[in-house]
Amino acid sequence: MSRPRPEPVQVIKQRRDAALQALAGGMPYIRHLGITFERRGDELTAILPYDDKLIGNPLLPALHGGVTAAFLETTAVVALAWSRLWDRIENGEIELDALTPETLPRMPKTVDFTIDYLRSGLPRDAYARARIVRSGRRFASVQVEGWQDNRDRLHASATGHFVMPRD
């Protein structure tokens, strides 16, 4: 029995990146904040490039707590949607080529989200990664870590619960 020859790496990469773009592109608020996602295999890192409009305390100055909340929540939702999408793409249930913002699976809904502010957000780029602690048929629990200069010195961490869309 012979296995089909794997597709060229660039073709796969391009398709996966397009799927990620379609996912994040359907959320105007992500674009407004300037959040982008970097992908290593199925692992995502969210990036929030610094912008003056993100400031919440002009005296320090420090990032707005609401911006950090939005950034971490966005990271959680996209990571969750991405992990579901990834599985369905890999098992052939969803054709990547046919994927547009209109035909994407529905996004998970946030039930609750709790943010711990560990340090004030510096006027610099911020990064975040989500860990899906549990992803069941109906509910998911996700933890998110946010940092700036040092990966080990988090400026915020969060945990949230989500209802998975039924489709």
Binding site: G26, Y29, G66, A70, T74, T110
Partner: peptide, 24 residues
């Protein structure tokens, strides 16, 4: 505002924008 939308298909405001509002 359109820039606050979380899901382009429904036009519903992103939870993050509500968080920013609540925090402020």
């Amino acid at each position: 505002d359109e820039k606050l939308i979380g899901d382009a298909r429904t036009g519903v405001i992103h939870g993050g924008a509500i968080s920013a509002l609540m925090d402020t």
